[in-house]
């Protein structure tokens, strides 16, 4: 694996390998000193062209816990606001000889373009409405930790699928891991032709009780202004996941940040079925595993279950 650009690039076995590695890093996360020397002396660039709290901070933490040197660049503070093209920015950053570039962009395919312009490993941290592969990996990780396997698990993804890169990566990852995916949301926010990805579409939540997992997407206020839904009130009435709609046997997930009272009610967020905090926690170890896989895994032929105490097993 040279880059992580899309879930499409990963076979089921690849996903399992990365997540097994993440599980071994979870053990490190439980210690007082949470650092391993795996990427010592190597540089990771975080290049974020969009506001992000959890994705950027978890990538930063992941790089630091692997002992990498980290450069974090926010579009607002860099020369990109002065009109420098993405290509020129990458050329400049490549001069620092980074081992990896983690990029978040408002445009589909940006990470793929960057991969063509640099020798560094490129990690897609979200490209437009296209994909967010590390989010999907941490979602699968969270479900695996809880359920053991996704085979035959019925997952409903509810809300604004049209504008969601998380939904696209999740559909691909969940189905690849054997789950059955159903999409539900206002018909204006379900893209025409999405069934081709191997999922089904339900315009209402009538059959929601059949779900094992309810994955709720963020509902952005600007969608009202664009007339995709008439009002937040009507959206909430039809699609909000609340304690009444959420069954005791169901698990609840959300990529964050949550609009409390819009797509999720407070009682659902705080219910014992909610895995939202576990998803955030998984973010760091899964991103550690991704960086490790790209920068140390393939080259070092390290054993599947890395012992973080033994430097030689992960250096090379």
């Amino acid at each position: 694996m040279k880059h992580l650009l899309s879930i499409d690039d990963l076979a089921r076995a690849d996903i399992e390998r990365v997540l097994d590695r993440a599980a071994s890093f979870a053990e490190v996360a439980g210690r007082e000193i949470k650092k391993v020397p795996a990427l010592r002396g190597r540089t990771v660039v975080n290049l974020f062209y969009e506001a992000s709290t959890r994705t950027s901070s978890s990538f930063e933490l992941a790089a630091k816990r692997l002992s990498a040197d980290l450069v974090s660049i926010r579009a607002a503070t860099s020369s990109v606001t002065k009109g420098e093209s993405l290509k020129d920015t990458i050329t400049t950053l490549t001069a620092y000889d980074p081992a990896a570039i983690v990029i978040r962009s408002p445009h589909a395919g940006a990470a793929q373009l960057v991969a063509g312009w640099t020798d560094a490993a490129v990690v897609n941290a979200g490209d437009g409405k296209h994909e967010h592969p590390t989010q999907a990996l941490l979602d699968v990780y969270t479900l695996r930790q809880r359920l053991g396997s996704l085979d035959g698990v019925k997952i409903w993804i509810v809300g604004d699928v049209l504008h969601s890169r998380v939904a696209r990566s999740d559909i691909l990852a969940f189905t690849r891991m054997g789950a059955q995916v159903t999409l539900s949301g206002p018909p204006t926010l379900i893209p025409r032709g999405i069934e081709a990805l191997g999922c089904t579409v339900e315009p209402t939540l009538d059959r929601l009780p059949e779900a094992d997992v309810v994955y709720v997407l963020r509902m952005q206020r600007e969608r009202m202004e664009e007339a995709y839904v008439p009002s937040l009130r009507e959206y909430a009435a039809r699609y909000q996941i609340n304690a009444e709609r959420l069954q005791p046997h169901q698990l609840l997930m959300h990529p964050g940040p949550v609009n409390r009272g819009v797509e999720l009610s407070g009682d659902a967020i705080d219910s014992p079925q909610a895995l939202i905090a576990q998803q955030v926690e998984a973010g760091v170890v899964v991103r550690m595993a991704v960086l490790y896989e790209l920068l140390a895994g393939a080259n070092s032929r390290a054993p599947l279950s890395v012992n973080p105490n033994v430097e030689s097993a992960v250096a090379a």
Binding site: G128, E131, I194
Partner: peptide, 9 residues
């Protein structure tokens, strides 16, 4: 169509 749905374009 199916391709724009896949790509999020």
């Amino acid at each position: 169509g199916a391709v724009s749905a896949r790509l999020g374009l």
